[in-house]
Design a protein around this nucleic acid. Structure first.
Lengths: 198, 198
DNA sequence: TTTTCAAATGAACAGTTGTTCAGTTACATG
DNA sequence: CATGTAACTGAACAACTGTTCATTTGAAAA
């Protein structure tokens, strides 16, 4: 088969997403700095130059991955029912976090590990969104403390501690492992609840 | 000042550690793949070629950093008093972890983020040491469960959750921040204790 | 003072990097 | 069928990569 400047059934609508998928997978596996544009192109099945129809440069590609992940995360959490008393809300947040993150380990990995490879402006933007997400949990803890149902030594630190605990799960969880998502959810909810309960 | 092939008072005993310090700092800041041997050399104040008097290649340099960190960690934890009932031991482990890791944020960062840049053999070696460290905590939890003083839904998962919570601290703690190490220690011990107590 | 040699230089190596762009191709439109 | 153009190729660019090594240096040993 001879090389073709344009393949059958190949459009911007197909190649565009493919570029992002390939970049996400490769960067999650090897890291941003260790992945070349040529590797991404090869995974898509295209030459390097073609990538620049879909991103202005490598940095923007990384930013797009991280920014869209955070946007989707914030949209999803906003669409989740978080009403009720603080304990119910904490449970809803915990379960949401686990169920949203576990099937998206590549996204989590990239958004966690590649922060330092963002340009200063891009870093600020992504960091603000991460902070927005953390604040949702922090507010739940504050409300629970105000009602006297939660009791933690420091709300902000406890927020960070719980987020770290929950996010760490994505780093070692394997879908084909010993425990299913329901079990995991129960175990983590048990730890979270007890840790903050008055 | 003309370039000199050997500077005054410059020995292997001085440059060697400097190479590791520079590599640690730069890799913690930018990541292994993003740091070049020339950048490390510049930080040391030397030309690239000189680095190869102290490491056989870049990969070995990374492995040395990670392996020696894990070795020091395991030595330090072994030298710490972990006797007594499970609650006392859990407290000792929690405080040890925090006090050991907080002043070594560069080491923690590198040992956490650069695992995927290790060659397969080096990865296996470092991973085994990490597992040894985790097992210390896991054994404390098991003993506590056997005595009925702890109660967790799954010991292994709880171990990973607590380690993630504790290690996450190193990612955001700033020495000049709002809270000193004593306060932090108290806050985390509170969370850990409550999370696993029966 | 002369000798010795660990330690560092600086140039070179072949390969890879991100990015650009003139040219080619195949599909959609007329 | 002819034409326009979005999508892609392939080659080129300068800069940078890890690594090697013959050469030079200067401090310590004789």
């Amino acid at each position: 088969m001879l090389p073709m400047a344009r393949k059958q059934g190949s459009h911007s609508d197909i190649t565009g997403p493919k570029v992002h998928q390939a970049a996400l997978r490769l960067i999650a596996q090897h890291g941003y700095a260790a992945v070349s544009m040529r590797q991404i192109a090869a995974e898509v099945g295209v030459q390097v130059g073609a990538l620049y129809n879909y991103t202005s440069d490598k940095q923007s590609l990384l930013y797009d991955l991280m920014h869209s992940h955070m946007r989707d995360l914030l949209d999803a959490v906003a669409a989740t029912d978080m009403s009720g008393d603080p304990v119910t809300r904490l449970r809803a947040f915990t379960c949401f976090h686990i169920r949203y993150h576990l099937p998206r380990s590549d996204n989590v990995f990239v958004s966690y590990m590649e922060l330092r490879n963002l340009s200063p402006d891009n870093f600020t933007a992504v960091e603000a969104m991460r902070r927005d997400y953390e604040n949702i949990l922090e507010q739940i803890l504050r409300d629970g403390e105000a009602e006297g149902v939660f009791s933690v030594a420091d709300t902000r630190v406890s927020t960070m501690a719980l987020i770290a605990m929950l996010t760490g799960l994505s780093h070692w969880y394997r879908e084909d492992g010993r425990l299913g998502m329901d079990k995991i959810e129960a175990i983590y909810w048990d730890l979270v609840r007890k840790a903050v309960m008055a």
